[in-house]
Design a protein around this nucleic acid. Sequence first.
RNA 1: GCAGUUGGACGGUCUGUCGCUUGCUCCUAUGAGGAGUAUGAGGAAAGUCCGGGCAACAGAGAGCAUCCCGCUUGUUAAUGUGCAAGGUGUCGGCGACGGCAGGGAAGACGCAGAAGAAAACAACCGCCCCGCUCAGGCGAGGUAAGGGUGAGAAGGUAGAGUAAGAGCCUACCAGUCAGGUUGGUGACAUCCUGAGCUGUGCGUUCCGGGAGUUGCAAGGUCAUGUAUACCGGUGAUUGAGGGUUGCUCGUCCGAGCCGGAGGGUAGACCGCUAUAGUCUGCUGGCAACAGCAGGCACAGAUAAAUGACAGGCGCUAUGAGGUUUUUGCCACAUAGUACAGAACCCGGCUUAUAGGCCAACUGUUUUC
RNA 2: GCCCAGAUGGCGGAAUCGGUAGACGCGCUGGUCUCAAACACCAGUGGGGCAACCCAUCCCGGUUCGACCCCGGGUCUGGGUA
Length: 130
Amino acid sequence: MPSPARNTFKKSERLCSRILMDHLFQGDNRTASSYPIRAVFLPVEEAVQKGVSILISVPKKRFHDAVDRNRVKRQIREAYRKNKHALVEQVAQSGRGLLVAFIYVSAEIESTEYVEKRVVRLLDKIGAEL
RNA sequence: GCAGUUGGACGGUCUGUCGCUUGCUCCUAUGAGGAGUAUGAGGAAAGUCCGGGCAACAGAGAGCAUCCCGCUUGUUAAUGUGCAAGGUGUCGGCGACGGCAGGGAAGACGCAGAAGAAAACAACCGCCCCGCUCAGGCGAGGUAAGGGUGAGAAGGUAGAGUAAGAGCCUACCAGUCAGGUUGGUGACAUCCUGAGCUGUGCGUUCCGGGAGUUGCAAGGUCAUGUAUACCGGUGAUUGAGGGUUGCUCGUCCGAGCCGGAGGGUAGACCGCUAUAGUCUGCUGGCAACAGCAGGCACAGAUAAAUGACAGGCGCUAUGAGGUUUUUGCCACAUAGUACAGAACCCGGCUUAUAGGCCAACUGUUUUC
RNA sequence: GCCCAGAUGGCGGAAUCGGUAGACGCGCUGGUCUCAAACACCAGUGGGGCAACCCAUCCCGGUUCGACCCCGGGUCUGGGUA
């Protein structure tokens, strides 16, 4: 991937496996918070997971309608897509993998601009902790 | 014009930048990735309330029970609260119209708190008559017209009649049943005659029709990975247990089964999207719908794609302005632009919904 | 996705076949006992109104003389399911 300006978000960057999900939430994970989003993350060996893999979760309890849930997920995904490069590079150089879960904890829809700011801060925090 | 009723159709759009899903083609080169191109939410995708398709189990049935439905004719794959046209009763509305109900005997049986004398073989007060009387009443009987209670008190009104009264009798009216006339496929309507047949509500009984169960996490294929290690109970042709709709009979399979305590996998592919599909025209029908001919090809995701941001145009409301005899039209500013996201697929119902559009009809105030 | 349950005073939880809603327990308030408290015992305990009475079983309709109960529609909560 020669050009870092490409803000892609492919299927391979999403965390799909049920085993890895259990691994993430049950293992000795670490958390970072930047309201309204909390991140749960876990560094793993490259054999298990190559690069960074994320999942986004919005609880049904806080957003009853599917339309609202989808909107929040999309906001977070857009923010991650645009600002992931520093973290991806860092993980790639360390030669390990990283699992991250973004959990939306607020009960209100925020502006896209605000969500993006918080995600950027969250990614910085995760980068600093590694 | 205003207010309203019913039905129908719609429910944004364009440009730029950065992205996503799936199909196809090509490239790097078999691990995946890249490029191009096409494609990608709804009228309710929702609630999961009905009906089907489809799939698995079973294919040997019989009887009983249980549950559901109930105006008519038609229509659909669809019996229910589907749809269309119609019919009756009742409630709401000035009205257009809307909501709800409906098999059968005004036959039978059962039940009905509180109130009330009494809830169906009825007499508390009252009314009438007879007997006794110390003239205060007491006793025997008749009476459903009046009082009060109640959802309901023997259909209502008037007359005749009577000791007082009562469908006891007569007339009229409301209903029911029986027979007939006319119209209608029919529910039913109309008219005539006859029968004094007439308390309210619920349930049961009866009649006709219907229902196997579970649901795409159905079910199938291929991977990956182990352990029935151990304990208790019960049974092996004298039959444990299971299938067959809930039960019984019958029938089939049959060496394991039940409880405790554990171990392993939860990945990929098929199912998976083309159909009771939709549009146009013609024919039949009041209509729902059906038939024929022709055109079109239209999401398949899986921690779950169809987006994010910026700007413009529509549309609506408000404000102030220009123009015109007015309805309007023109340009400007501000605000708003709903409900809501496929998860096997259809049909229907129900609920949510900014905003305007079309058709038919109703009420009302009038103006030219 | 599919299939099911449930909602009653401050809390748990009753109410037979539709017939006076709130039994019973906990909690709370007041009183007795005590120097004081705990325990125990007694009384009260949904809201409005001076009272008659009215409103109250998640919400909106319907059936019925009468509905927590029966029948529709909605809201919320909780389960099961490869």
